[in-house]
Amino acid sequence: MNMLREWIITITSVIIFITFVEILVPNSNNKRYVNVVVGILIMIVILNPLFHLLRQDINLEEGILKASSEIEYRAMSNRMDSNMSVMQKEAVIELYKTKLIDQMKHRLNSTTNYIVQDIKLEVEETDEEKFGTINKLDIVLQDSKKPETPETKHIEPVNIQVSINKNNNTAETHSILLSNEEKEIRNSFSIYYDVPKENINIHILKDK
């Protein structure tokens, strides 16, 4: 009963929402495309509970992220194939990285309580088959001012080895010991972006 009620509320609110978006769109030939995407959105919203019933997991969002990043690196590799100089190749790789980083920051800022300080990204560039997949991910977060601090109050300088190959990059951060949120973030990122969990490093800074 509860689910049914929520479902109906969601559908009506989505329809109201779409009305507003339609006002905003300019009256052009492109209006049809907006209608298409909006229609698909309605379909997804309506079908969501059904997915929950039939399957325990909902991989819709990961699917979308994967598909959109796949399109991006296919577009990038198409550009590669067309006789480009090395410098342009670098530029395209940089652009791809920046886009991924923006997407990640947006995701982190909206879903967790932390503010993103910095994200460093390493992308596979030499191996032709796995071109574009993420090799390593470093995320530095900062706790936004929340009065409820986790129970472990002692803060110690921690030396963290941040590398998969053997050169010693040590980063020293004052960090609270691994909390549950970190594990959650690490899990979700390793699924969405297809990176092995050991290669994701998350540092949470807390400044006084």
Binding site: V37, F51, N59, A67
Partner: peptide, 13 residues
């Protein structure tokens, strides 16, 4: 290009 990922993943699902 923007709309296709959503379409494709919905179809997959």
């Amino acid at each position: 290009v923007m709309a296709v990922p959503i379409l494709v993943s919905l179809m997959d699902l």
